[in-house]
C-alpha cells in the first residue's frame, strides 16, 4: 500500500498523543499546576490534535471532513473521528483543572482516558477490518497500535515502571509480527487463479496488462519502492522504537541517567522508530488487487 506521509505522521503522532493524554486523564501523573501542567497536557493535545489535522491532508476534499462523524454505526474511520473529538472534549476540564489548579473532579478525565484508548483501537480497526490486505487483517494489528500508544504514552508521562515492560513487550510483538507478516498473504490463499476464477482450468498468469501506464490502483495498492529496504527498516524500528528506549529507561530506573533528559531522549528515539515501523506497515502491506496485475 502507498505510504502516504500524512497518514504515517497522523497515526504515529495521534497514537502517541492519545497514549499520553490517557495517562494524564487518569491522573497518573497529576502534573504540578501552572507551566508544568500546561506543557505536559499541551504536548498531549499537540500530538493528538496535530495528528488529526495531518490526517485531513490526504483527503481529496478536506472541506467535507465534518461528514466523517456521521457513520459511527458502521464505519471504523467514522468511529475514530467521533472517539477522538469526544476524548479531546472530555479531557479538557481535567486539563484546565490541572493547569489552573481548579480542583475539579477527575471523572471527565478518566472517561476521556477510556475514549483515548478507544480512539487508538478504532485507528487500528480501520486496517484490521480489510480482508483485502491480509497482512493487516489479523488479530495482532490492534495490539501493535495499542502497544505503541501504551509504551509511548508511558514514556512521555514519565511512568518508567510501565514504560519498561511495555517497550520490551512491544519489541517482542513487533519482531514476531515482522516475521509472521511475511507469510500472511500466502496463508490467505488468494492467487491470480482465485482472483479471476481461471485457476479451475489451470495455472493462470498475466499475458498482457489492461493499460500501458500505471493507474490509481497500481499507485495506491502496489507500492513496491517502499519495500526495498524492508530488512534494514525493520531492524531500525526494533532498535529505535523498543530496544534503545527500554535500555535508557532501565538506566533511568537504576539512577545512572537523569530522569527528564533520559525520558526525553527515549521519547524522541521511540517516535523515530514508530515512524519507521509505520512506513513499513503501509509499504509492506500487499493488496489482493495486485493479483489481477500479477504483482504484489
Amino acid at each position: 500500500m502507498h505510504p502516504a506521509p500524512s497518514v504515517i505522521v497522523f497515526t504515529v503522532a495521534s497514537g502517541l498523543g492519545f497514549g499520553l493524554l490517557a495517562f494524564l486523564g487518569l491522573g497518573w501523573p497529576v502534573p504540578a499546576p501552572g507551566l508544568p501542567a500546561f506543557l505536559h497536557w499541551g504536548l498531549g493535545y499537540l500530538l493528538a490534535a496535530g495528528g488529526l489535522v495531518a490526517s485531513t491532508f490526504h483527503l481529496g476534499h478536506p472541506e467535507r471532513a465534518w461528514r466523517a462523524f456521521s457513520q459511527w454505526r458502521s464505519s471504523w474511520l467514522s468511529r475514530e473521528g467521533v472517539a477522538a473529538v469526544a476524548a479531546l472534549v472530555l479531557l479538557a476540564p481535567t486539563a484546565l483543572s490541572d493547569w489552573l489548579d481548579l480542583g475539579l473532579t477527575r471523572l471527565p478525565g478518566q472517561a476521556g482516558a477510556v475514549l483515548a484508548a478507544l480512539t487508538v483501537l478504532a485507528t487500528s480497526m480501520i486496517y484490521t477490518q480489510l480482508s483485502s490486505v491480509p497482512r493487516w487483517h489479523h488479530w495482532s494489528t490492534p495490539p501493535v497500535f495499542l502497544g505503541f500508544a501504551l509504551a509511548g504514552g508511558a514514556l512521555l508521562a514519565g511512568r518508567t515502571w510501565v514504560a519498561l515492560p511495555a517497550l520490551v513487550g512491544l519489541g517482542l510483538l513487533l519482531a514476531w509480527v515482522f516475521a509472521d507478516g511475511e507469510t500472511r498473504f500466502a496463508r490467505a490463499g488468494q492467487t491470480t487463479g482465485t482472483a479471476t476464477g481461471l485457476g479451475r482450468i489451470g495455472r493462470t498468469r498475466v499475458l498482457e496488462q489492461p493499460h500501458s501506464g500505471p493507474n490509481y490502483l497500481m499507485r495506491e495498492m502496489i507500492h513496491i519502492v517502499g519495500r526495498r529496504h524492508a530488512r534494514k527498516l525493520q531492524a531500525l524500528s526494533l532498535v529505535l522504537a523498543a530496544a534503545l528506549p527500554a535500555a535508557i529507561v532501565a538506566l533511568v530506573l537504576a539512577g545512572v541517567l537523569p530522569a527528564l533528559a533520559g525520558l526525553a531522549l527515549a521519547g524522541v528515539l521511540h517516535m523515530a522508530g514508530a515512524l519507521a515501523q509505520r512506513w513499513l506497515f503501509f509499504a509492506q502491506a500487499e493488496h489482493v488487487v495486485g493479483l489481477y496485475y500479477g504483482k504484489r
Binding site: H58, R67, A195, Y216, L217, M221, V289
Partner: peptide, 18 residues
C-alpha cells in the same frame, strides 16, 4: 465523498478508482 480512498482499499476487486 471526502476522497479518503478507504473504500478503494476495502474492495478486493479494484472496482473503485479515484
Amino acid at each position: 465523498c471526502i476522497g479518503c480512498g478507504l473504500c478503494a482499499w476495502a474492495c478486493p476487486y479494484g472496482a473503485r478508482e479515484m
